[in-house]
Amino acid sequence: MVDLARVQKELQECNRDVEVSGIRVSPKADSLTNLVGTIPGPLGTPYEGGTFKIDITLPDGYPFEPPKMRFATKVWHPNISSQSGAICLDILKDQWSPALTLKTALLSVQALLSAPEPDDPQDAVVAQQYIREQNTFVNTARYWTEAFAKTSSLGVEEKVQKLVEMGFPEDIVRSTLEAVGGDENLALEKLCSA
């Protein structure tokens, strides 16, 4: 059974210094076993300025088993799958310790963003690019950050305007944006496929 008392404590603790760390953890629905964490992209990296969402699922054995974490925001990084968002990080696997918390694990993920490990890749394509064409890698990573990790920073009106400029009728844009919860990329996908 998941130690819910501990999870609750962790959430409180994490939300207490959210201004300092920038790391947020909140429950997805009523259940405390499905959570969403957000981390700011580290400064001085191609991920700077982005806000990355991470899906967290707590297994039954938590905290004696590591939490399952996956990037919900698309990210271009050698140790994170560009397709599924799977994270390759030792502390989320065999190096997990029950003294680690969701916050410390997210901090480690944030550190992973600023220090890629191309020798132990999760996404071979990205890792190849990182090793061979560093400039292209930085540009792609920055572009992905701009495209996928910054949407929430725009206001609703700006998003609407952006999509209207692309040639979609305003009322459909508004309803579609509402339907997907304000994510302009998802809205764009939906509008295109409609």
């Binding site: 130690d3 008392a5 501990r6 404590k9 962790e10 603790e13 905290p63 029950p98 003294a99």
Partner: peptide, 13 residues
Amino acid sequence: MHSDEIECSVCLE
């Protein structure tokens, strides 16, 4: 009295 303050690092209690 001293022990009373000490928290377990796993369950945080």
